[in-house]
Amino acid sequence: MRIGDFHASYRHDEALFDTRAQRVWLGLLLAALAAFPFVGGSYLTYLACLLGIHLIAAAGLNVMTGYTGLISLGHAAFMGVGCYAVAVAERAGIPFFLALPLAGAASAAIGLVVGIPSLRIKGLYFAVATLAAQFVLGFVFREWESVTGGVRGANVPAASLFGFELAGDRRVYFLIAPLAVLMLLGARNLFRTRVGRAFIAIRDRDISAEVLGISLFRYKLAAFAIGSFYAGVAGGLWGYFFRVATPELFGLPLSVFYLAAIIVGGLGSILGTILGATFMTLIPEFLRALVGWAEAFGLEQAGVYLAPLRQVVFGLLIVGFLVFEPHGLAEMWRRTRRFFHLWPFRT
């Protein structure tokens, strides 16, 4: 059993990671992340890059939806904005370390416009407004050919630093992984500040928050801008990773995927974002492996059922978590930890 952790100084009280064990594990994790692409094979490195992008995007959505209570069905479209912004910026010769923040900013600017109705409408109505934004932006991606390349899409050149090209999964990994760590830390830190606390107050009861002096308009827009900024950066990284931006990549299914990830992980929890995004990224890979085995054992038809199987499992996961574990994987993790902390006194 672990004994209590007493905060003896203000610095200790304010620390982001407050126990020694946490800091040690975090250090080990960072070391493992740095070594990962050299130890894991190319497939695992690819998955890690994909996961990094998903983590950033899901964290942004959790800031909006999980912490502030603004349901967004248009997150993928904001990623698309980021991705196309990177494509355009690279065409203009802007290096990646400026292009990525620009992508975030472009996405945040559009997020501000979409967020404006949030002052008058909320809940279901707002969800439908973001759904509309998703389709309108998708239409723009398809039809504004001079910028987006239409249905065929736009190519994104490799990110390069002083002539050193970040091409190939392993090199891009060292662009994605540090950014993912940084942005997750940023999201975690946000909720210790006035702004983050205001978001939570708005989620819990917006009218009460306004009575307490929190400007709903300003903070709802801020939440939307931050969330879309994350989406924009994730979209930019997506561009550098896959090297192409096409409209159908950033459709409604991807938006729903991120919502599913934060629900499965846990709304309003950064740990939940990480667990949920990881889980939802790995599930399709697991299913593919499963179907591969089934084929190896003589079920030749199994391949046909991969896509439907994926959808069914995806839907069942969403419904199942909502019905049986509404606080998601983060809550399961907390429960497991508590069990071991209190063992053997309380089981």
């Binding site: 939806t65 209570g69 349901i71 809940g123 279901l124 969800a127 729903v256 919502l259 599913a260 629900i263 709304l267 896509a307 439907p308 199987l309 994926r310 959808q311 069914v312 499992v313 995806f314 839907g315 069942l316 996961l317 969403i318 419904v319 909502l322 019905v323 509404p326």
Partner: peptide, 18 residues
């Protein structure tokens, strides 16, 4: 609201896949 919205979306995915 978000739980109920997502539940119906998840349900849609299940029916679609089936």
């Amino acid at each position: 609201v978000i739980s109920i919205v997502m539940a119906t979306i998840g349900l849609g995915a299940v029916l679609h896949g089936l």
